[in-house]
Simulated assay, not measured.
Amino acid sequence: MFSRISNLIRGFFSLFITGLEKQNPEALLELEQENLRKQIASYNQGLAAHAGLAERLIGQVRKLETEEKELRARTAAHLRAGNKDAAAQHALRLQTVTRELAENRAQMDQAETTYSDLIRARDVAVNAARAKIESLKGAINDMRMKTAMAEMNEMASGMIGQIGGSGDTLNRLHEMVEEERNKAAGRARVARDSLDMSDVNVKEAEMKALADQALADFAAAEGISLGDSEAAPAATSRSMGTKPASEGESA
């Protein structure tokens, strides 16, 4: 039972971590880059140890080559001098050195070949990993850009749907304005139809009659004939108190 609960908890944590990784792929990629750097450093340490072994074999080969030359010269010298026992001892040692030299040369060649293969394998693996990382960087950037474009398109389509929808604020406002305008037009029509124009016409005729009567009274008081338009200036001058000059005075 406890193992099942533990598995369930691990499953929840795994889902949670997977969700975080999906939300932050850059962080996961940076972690993989750091792991790659650590692996390269560890691999280089192994290469350094192998290179040290190859250098030690090279040193041994050089030492054995020098010893072989010396033993060969000593063996020949003792043999020419007639010292067969000494020459035999040096010849025996020469055989051993020659055998060791051949073995060390073979090991040195194998070590050099292995070192070159390891270097090539490291370079290939590192280049492949770097290419994959660069590809992932491009894919992440493309994903971010496409996600942003998708969000913008969704936002735009949502705005278009909201603006053009039947239940949006602008449509409701338009309907309310149209309704109030129609109501106002109806009220104006009802008020116009209910207006009694007979009283207005009577009042207008009464005002016109009073105005004509006032004008007639003024004309009578001033001695102006409403039918003679040419006599109006003379009558006006007499009303101002001016008298025409007599013929005697003018003479």
Rank of each mutant, 00 (worst) to 15 (best):
N171G: 03
G186Y: 05
D142F: 03
D196H: 09
S237R: 11
K208T: 15
H174Q: 11
T147M: 05
D217P: 03
G19W: 13
L47C: 01
L101T: 01
L215Q: 08
V177T: 03
L79D: 05
E67Y: 03
G223A: 10
Q162I: 03
N153M: 06
A231K: 09
N35A: 01
T242S: 08
S250V: 15
A86W: 00
R99F: 09
R187W: 13
G46W: 01
E204H: 13
L226Q: 08
S3D: 11
Q110W: 09
R181M: 12
I119K: 14
N201C: 15
S237N: 08
E21T: 12
F12P: 05
E180H: 10
G82H: 01
F2L: 11
A150E: 07
S14W: 15
D85P: 05
A73F: 06
A102I: 02
N153A: 09
Q107I: 04
M108Q: 13
N141M: 02
S225E: 10
L226M: 08
R172K: 05
Q45L: 03
E249F: 13
K69Y: 04
F16S: 13
G11L: 14
M240T: 14
A231L: 10
A211S: 12
R93Q: 05
P244C: 09
N24Q: 06
S225K: 13
L226T: 09
T236E: 07
M159Y: 02
H174S: 12
E32W: 02
S194C: 06
K137D: 00
F218L: 14
L36D: 00
K208S: 15
M176D: 11
A91P: 01
N141T: 03
A27V: 05
V200C: 08
A131T: 07
T113W: 06
A251V: 10
L170T: 14
A185W: 07
Q162R: 06
G59N: 06
G167W: 00
N104G: 08
E68V: 02
E112N: 15
E55R: 05
L47M: 03
L92A: 10
Q213D: 12
P233E: 12
K183G: 14
K38S: 00
P244K: 11
E222D: 09
G158Q: 02
A121K: 14
G241T: 07
G52T: 12
M152C: 06
A148R: 05
Q107H: 12
I224K: 08
G164Q: 07
G241L: 06
K84V: 11
L28W: 01
L15M: 10
D168T: 04
A216T: 11
A188R: 11
T169H: 09
A205V: 10
R238C: 08
D217I: 13
E204V: 14
E70M: 07
E179M: 13
I224C: 08
M159T: 01
L57Y: 04
L92Y: 05
T18G: 14
R74H: 07
L195N: 11
L136T: 13
E112K: 15
E180G: 05
H78K: 04
E34L: 00
